[in-house]
Computed example of a mutant assay.
Amino acid sequence: MPFASPSNIHIEHHHCLSSPPNLFIQLLCSCLKHFEFRVRRKLLHTTKDYNFQYDSRISLKPTCYFIESRVRQGRVFAPGALMGASHSGLHKDLSSSSSSFCLGDLPEDCVALIVENLDPVEICRLSKLNRAFRGASWADFVWESKLPPNYEAFLERILGGGFPENLQKRDLYACLCRVNSFDHGTKKVWIDKRSGGVCLSISAKGLSITGIDDRRYWSHIPTDESRFASVAYLQQTWWFEVDGEIDFPFPVGTYSIFFRLQLGQSGKWFGRRVCNTEQVHGWDIKPVRFQLWTEDGQYSSSQCMLTERGRWNHYHGGDFVVRESRSSSTKIKFSMTQIDCTHTKGGLSLDSVIVYPSSCKDRF
């Protein structure tokens, strides 16, 4: 639905609103009257992101309710509870019957409470609006809510504690959103920018593959189609078995495991991608079995036929739930097998195993 162009926002002074919290609510709700339109219009002008105008997450009513509840709890006016900006702007002389305000008149701490409800990508976009939004986008409490609850154990696992302790929370978040390698480069982990969930990938070299050292069956092929720069390629085998294990401090939540596979061997021909599927055989006779175990007794098993050739696919290997516990790390074992020795199978490329929050598995 199109938005009407807003005029100046007027705030009338009422004697019943003389206390700071009530005055703050009045000021905020009035300034947010056209908040959705102003933000979207500014973003369209500064970022040219035309899909952003249909994003329902920037909503007036939930934001007002949230800020009002914070004010009622005394969090907005508690000393040191928020960042930098003074509340003097809330005590302007309202002796006249009306005053005009615009989005840029909002104090930084007020803006910080607004952007705290948005996802990190939108926070960075809003920082382009004006100085108040830019300053609010650096507030530690805004970014601490986006970090995993156990981010310190997370950092210790991937960086070994070799990170400065005086980093701001936004810098920490940016560091964790980058793909970080550990365990000799066989594993990579990062935070999904949209959902804030932890994602982990294990290369073929980090898995236990039966017969991987015998060049008659398996070989490692360099490729730019993998984040690990190489994949394991199966020429032919009777006994197909791939096992793996994860020991990582996942935050509480539900996660899904995927095997990234391709029937065929991809390569380049005069600069164009080609996929050789001549050696693909045996996968349409019996299904592949996926299994998953956790240290707290969870178990998952499923079967799937591998039929699609020439492109990478993510095959669901199972789900697991990380609950609150005394253990700082979660141990998981998983496998992919096809051990029917009545026929051979081959022509399979194995890239990696990926762990994603279950809320994001529809991307695959």
Score class of each variant (00 low, 15 high):
46 T>K: 13
277 T>P: 01
25 I>F: 12
303 Q>R: 15
280 V>D: 12
57 R>A: 09
305 M>W: 07
270 F>E: 14
364 F>Q: 05
148 P>T: 04
239 W>P: 00
288 V>R: 11
254 T>R: 10
186 T>Q: 14
191 I>Q: 10
177 C>Q: 15
232 A>R: 01
336 M>Y: 07
36 E>A: 11
226 S>F: 02
113 L>A: 04
9 I>N: 10
313 N>V: 06
323 R>P: 00
223 T>H: 05
231 V>N: 01
256 S>L: 04
310 G>R: 09
4 A>Q: 11
228 F>Y: 14
340 D>V: 05
131 R>S: 09
169 K>D: 01
62 P>M: 09
350 L>M: 08
334 F>M: 09
56 S>T: 07
262 Q>W: 00
283 W>Y: 13
151 Y>I: 05
191 I>R: 11
39 V>D: 03
238 W>F: 04
319 D>V: 04
305 M>Y: 15
239 W>R: 10
342 T>V: 00
163 F>W: 08
116 E>C: 06
301 S>F: 03
317 G>W: 09
8 N>V: 12
238 W>G: 02
82 L>P: 01
100 S>P: 00
129 L>E: 02
54 Y>A: 02
364 F>A: 03
225 E>W: 01
133 F>E: 04
27 L>N: 03
164 P>I: 01
308 E>G: 04
293 W>P: 00
63 T>M: 09
128 K>W: 02
172 L>T: 11
84 G>Y: 03
302 S>Q: 11
289 R>P: 01
166 N>R: 05
26 Q>L: 15
290 F>S: 15
206 G>A: 15
307 T>P: 02
5 S>A: 10
9 I>G: 03
256 S>C: 11
152 E>H: 07
66 F>W: 04
292 L>S: 09
337 T>Q: 13
45 H>K: 12
274 V>M: 12
104 G>V: 12
93 D>Q: 11
48 K>L: 14
280 V>E: 10
213 D>H: 07
57 R>V: 13
77 F>T: 10
342 T>S: 06
282 G>V: 13
234 L>S: 02
166 N>A: 09
67 I>Y: 09
163 F>M: 08
61 K>W: 04
355 V>P: 02
327 S>R: 10
113 L>H: 05
194 R>W: 08
230 S>R: 08
249 P>A: 00
242 V>S: 03
339 I>G: 00
340 D>A: 07
278 E>C: 06
198 V>K: 03
112 A>S: 11
298 Q>N: 05
216 R>Q: 07
125 R>G: 06
136 A>G: 08
133 F>I: 01
12 E>S: 06
187 K>W: 08
147 L>P: 00
1 M>H: 02
255 Y>L: 07
196 G>H: 11
100 S>V: 07
207 L>T: 10
141 F>E: 00
200 L>Q: 05
150 N>T: 05
185 G>F: 15
43 L>E: 02
117 N>F: 00
352 S>C: 15
39 V>P: 01
226 S>M: 03
356 Y>L: 15
1 M>Y: 01
165 E>Q: 08
205 K>T: 12
282 G>C: 11
294 T>Y: 08
39 V>G: 02
128 K>V: 03
307 T>S: 13
313 N>A: 07
340 D>I: 05
349 S>E: 03
224 D>I: 05
5 S>L: 14
174 A>Y: 03
346 G>E: 07
303 Q>G: 07
23 L>V: 12
78 A>M: 11
327 S>N: 08
